[in-house]
Design a binder for these strands. Sequence first.
DNA 1: CATAGTATGTACGCTAGCGCACAAAATACC
DNA 2: GGTATTTTGTGCGCTAGCGTACATACTATG
Lengths: 241, 241
Amino acid sequence: MPSSPPHQPDQNRLLAALPAIELERIKSHLELVHMPLGDVLCESGGRLPYVYFPTSTIISLHYILENGASSEIAGVGNEGLLGISLIMGGESTPSWATVQTAGYGYRLKASLLLQEFNRGGPIQRLLLRYTQALITQISQTAVCNRHHTIEQQLCRWLLLTLDRLNSQELVMTQELIASMLGVRREGITEAAGKLQQAEIIRYRRGHITVLDRAGLETHVCECYDVVKKEFDRLFRDVRKY
Amino acid sequence: MPSSPPHQPDQNRLLAALPAIELERIKSHLELVHMPLGDVLCESGGRLPYVYFPTSTIISLHYILENGASSEIAGVGNEGLLGISLIMGGESTPSWATVQTAGYGYRLKASLLLQEFNRGGPIQRLLLRYTQALITQISQTAVCNRHHTIEQQLCRWLLLTLDRLNSQELVMTQELIASMLGVRREGITEAAGKLQQAEIIRYRRGHITVLDRAGLETHVCECYDVVKKEFDRLFRDVRKY
DNA sequence: CATAGTATGTACGCTAGCGCACAAAATACC
DNA sequence: GGTATTTTGTGCGCTAGCGTACATACTATG
């Protein structure tokens, strides 16, 4: 058990940003659930019976191609919500959603969220605003995939993950990171080796400890900053609601 | 002048999908405008005073990195709308929007669209549904960038562009295509050369003619199909509105 | 504490795509 | 109709990342 209750809904930043009255209306329907590593919440083309507001878990949105290759297109942590496609009226997406870091999250019946969304108030504005941030993240991933080195992408991915976990350590094999980034495991071994030599991280069989966060930030590409700023902006704007 | 009036709003498939009453409300505010190649509609971080419903033009959403490299993340043709970020409440995006194929489109004051969107009726549902399709397109671009060859990507791009133009020919230099895909111009020369040898396309200084569309479809990666099906689904669903 | 299973390190040849340089062809413009 | 400009073709050598294979280390489990 990586982290344990007591949990509060406001450990998810979206829920925390809701006006008290709005939160009150859904609070009793929020169920705290533990989400084990590797759990598949939604397959390609499948429907999502629940939406999830992560508190300590991180969910990965990714594609699996016909030849078995895969790529993450975005992550969803305590800054977000899994289930945007539902709100968009899509019923399904071509992407998968799996638990990348075990932890907790609140789930809510999809129909209930939809109902709240359709009231058109602060919840709607907040979720749309989050959708915008998600689009930015996906777009930046697209560009990063094209133009940046594995090492840069690894740094981006580590930083984004650390931000979500609010921690210096993460439990994660190189194999798993590789499948997220859609590269070879050996590519990660090499990039991580360099970072370790530079004393930026320490790697021990499924555990990465960040020794020098500033160092990571000098090795990362601009993509991290763009995404981070977009999330910051989201929660800055959201105070107005 | 690549194509000329008389134009009708319903040449844009989103506008065409609107119930008559809804369309009536905005019709008088829709302005037909010609959009010349290369026109920059929105810079990174800039605001969009108008939204655009393309009829014969195609708009490219793309990023420009610090080192000057660029990549398209999605295209917007007569199936869509430029200005989703506005609806999402974002005020701006890190992406650029430029005219990739000259032509016509209808523009509408941003504030007016927002007002209509906030009524919450069919227009809202339609635009959200389109957002979903746009997200799919961006996601698929991300994955395609990672895993598929230039030739496959060129085919994808050509097919998507042809679908939007409803034509066998397009006016487009290799240099421009390269900057869309975020690859070298020489890479496009090579890939296009192969397709030409296979008698699938004919290339003549800025003009591509597709001789064998089925041939293109055998060379393309699965990404084209995913995006196309998503657009088809959008307009199938939309009839219910 | 021995062993099976899993995670990581390393090596090697291969290929796609890059960066650069320049030639050839097509078009626009005076 | 001749010249400048743009577009396309081609030929390097180079590098990042791939696929494969295998060795080494860690750790869980009995």
